Simulated assay, not measured.
Amino acid sequence: MAEDAPKSIYDFTVKDIRGNDVSLSEYSGKVLLIVNVASKCGLTQSNYKELNVLYEKYKNQGFEILAFPCNQFAGQEPGTNEQIQEVVCTAFKAEFPIFDKIEVNGKNAAPLYKFLKSEKGGYFGDAIKWNFTKFLVNKEGKVVERYAPTTSPLKIEERRDTFVEIPGST
């Protein structure tokens, strides 16, 4: 392993939906759910609805959702960043951070996604198969779980021991 290889997601800087650099080290000490999202997917309504529920419930307990729009799956996120933000904030009422549209597979895959996939490969190799693949990252910036696009975000709540201080669990 190269000496300068990323050791956690905190080693990455990404762009937010307005094009500003964001160091993921800003999220140090928080549990993260990183999701590749799309506005026009059959999974969109249910995923955004449930992600909002999770976010509302746990955002004040050190939990954050980071959404990365991606148009690599059947062209289901065709809009510009401005259009995506409008849809996500208006139609889906998402309050969690939305980032710059990226690629998650192939030679132009975002470095963050190369890292996520290397940490937790899927059942059919590392490639992201569809919109709404979810990665759960612990407070140390390590990937602890990968969820399929069809996994309900509320199912991830079963792992809340990862992101909620349960009394008596320390």
Rank of each mutant, 00 (worst) to 15 (best):
V22G: 04
Q61T: 00
G121Q: 00
L154I: 15
K155P: 00
V14L: 07
K101A: 12
G75S: 09
R160D: 08
N47V: 01
F68T: 10
E77M: 05
K30P: 15
F63Q: 08
F135W: 03
A109D: 07
T90I: 05
T90G: 11
I9W: 09
K139I: 04
T44D: 08
S23Q: 08
G29Y: 10
F12N: 10
G19S: 10
R18P: 04
E165V: 04
Q85K: 15
E119I: 04
D11L: 05
S118Y: 05
K59Y: 00
A91V: 06
D4Q: 12
F92T: 08
N131G: 05
I156N: 12
N108Y: 12
T170L: 04
R160M: 12
V31Q: 02
E26M: 10
G121P: 15
A109T: 08
D161F: 15
F163M: 10
V144H: 06
L154S: 07
V144P: 14
I84H: 02
L54H: 04
N131K: 02
L32F: 13
D16P: 14
P167M: 14
D100G: 08
F124Q: 07
C89G: 10
V143R: 08
V104Q: 04
E165A: 14
G141K: 01
G168W: 15
G19P: 09
K155M: 09
T133E: 08
V87A: 10
Y55K: 09
A127V: 15
V22W: 02
D126V: 15
A91P: 12
I102S: 13
V35A: 01
S118L: 07
V137N: 06
D161A: 10
E82Q: 12
Y27F: 15
Q72P: 14
